[in-house]
Amino acid sequence: MSRYPADVALVVIDLQPDFMPGGALACVDGDAIVPDIAALLAERRYGTVVATQDWHPADHASFASQHPGHLPFEAILLHAQPQTLWPDHCVQGSAGAALHPGVDWTVADLILRKGTRRAVDSYSAFRENHGPDGTRPATGLAGWLHERGIREVHVCGLARDYCVLWSAQDAVKSGFRVKFHWDLTRPVTDANDGMVREALAKAKIAVI
């Protein structure tokens, strides 16, 4: 397979056991994409590879366990914004938070940990969710990619309807052309696939 141009980067989102069958927040067939992503990285088709890693403190504000009277998947307002409450997942240092061992991560140029601040969730690789001051702080990834001469970003990983989608949308807002490896993603719920496709079309993100 031919290599992509040097100005194209691959961002692999949250390929972690907690998002796979048997994990704390399992995506539909989340483990099914691991072999193909491992093969894609092994082919060295991308000159720049970034991996993100959800990395929450045990008392993270997005966990339903931190909100008495609420259950996982309920929605509340957090910092005046809608927030889905999740099962405890990807807790720092836990086995479920590790990058999947079926992938050779030594090819990654950068591993970006997100969701590390207790009070702020972080779906996107490029910006955290809204914080107490009402802003969405940048993670620094956009600047890192721009300084490496990257103009186009391809995304894959978990979950299609949350972290991968938000990362793709924020990549566009950060000035990149963006493509979405649909078959190398899986959703929390496939009922959201129509919404995801509409959102990608609205943002002019190509599906590959």
Rank of each mutant, 00 (worst) to 15 (best):
W144N: 00
E74M: 12
Q92M: 14
P68F: 13
P5C: 09
G143H: 01
H146W: 08
L145V: 10
P68K: 07
L158W: 10
A206M: 12
G69S: 03
L71Q: 14
G140Q: 02
R45E: 14
H56Q: 08
A203P: 05
A64H: 05
A39I: 01
L110G: 00
L40M: 15
D170G: 08
A9D: 02
A97T: 07
D7K: 09
G102H: 04
T135L: 12
P137C: 08
Q81E: 13
A51H: 04
I33Q: 01
R136D: 00
H100S: 03
A42D: 15
I111C: 13
E74W: 10
T189H: 11
D133Q: 05
P17A: 02
L77M: 15
A171H: 04
P132E: 15
E43T: 09
A42I: 02
R45G: 12
D88H: 00
V207R: 08
E74L: 11
F73A: 01
H130P: 04
D190G: 04
T106G: 06
V11M: 06
P87E: 04
W86C: 07
V12D: 02
D183C: 01
P132A: 15
L40T: 14
R45Q: 15
A199I: 01
W166M: 11
V49A: 04
P21F: 14
V49S: 01
P137G: 01
T84C: 06
H181N: 12
G140F: 10
A142N: 03
L77N: 06
A95R: 06
